[in-house]
């Protein structure tokens, strides 16, 4: 499943990241890499963007970008 379909509080392991090179570079420099566990922690009033937690970092992503991140189907 893709990252944007997580439910609030749910956390999953990142299995694949696709998208443009520029986008993947931005994610990598923030430490968002395969194998990391990511959790959905807050949703804005319109359901987009959302805040994800990676360790102690909180990162705000739009759904358009979050679909590029594949997460494991179960824990």
């Amino acid at each position: 499943m893709t990252l944007d379909s997580l439910v609030r509080g749910q956390s999953r392991k990142i299995v694949d990241i696709s998208g443009s090179g520029d986008f993947r570079q931005r994610l990598a420099t923030l430490g968002i890499l395969r194998g990391q566990v990511i959790q959905l922690s807050a949703v804005s009033p319109w359901g987009n963007p959302k805040v994800y937690r990676l360790g102690r970092q909180r990162i705000c992503l739009r759904n358009e970008e979050a679909v590029c991140i594949q997460v494991a189907d179960n824990d």
Binding site: D22, F23, L30, I59, C60, R62, E64, E65
Partner: peptide, 11 residues
């Protein structure tokens, strides 16, 4: 084309 928006929330 839209610029990517990724923002880190500071503590």
């Amino acid at each position: 084309p839209n610029e990517i928006f990724i923002m880190e929330l500071p503590p």
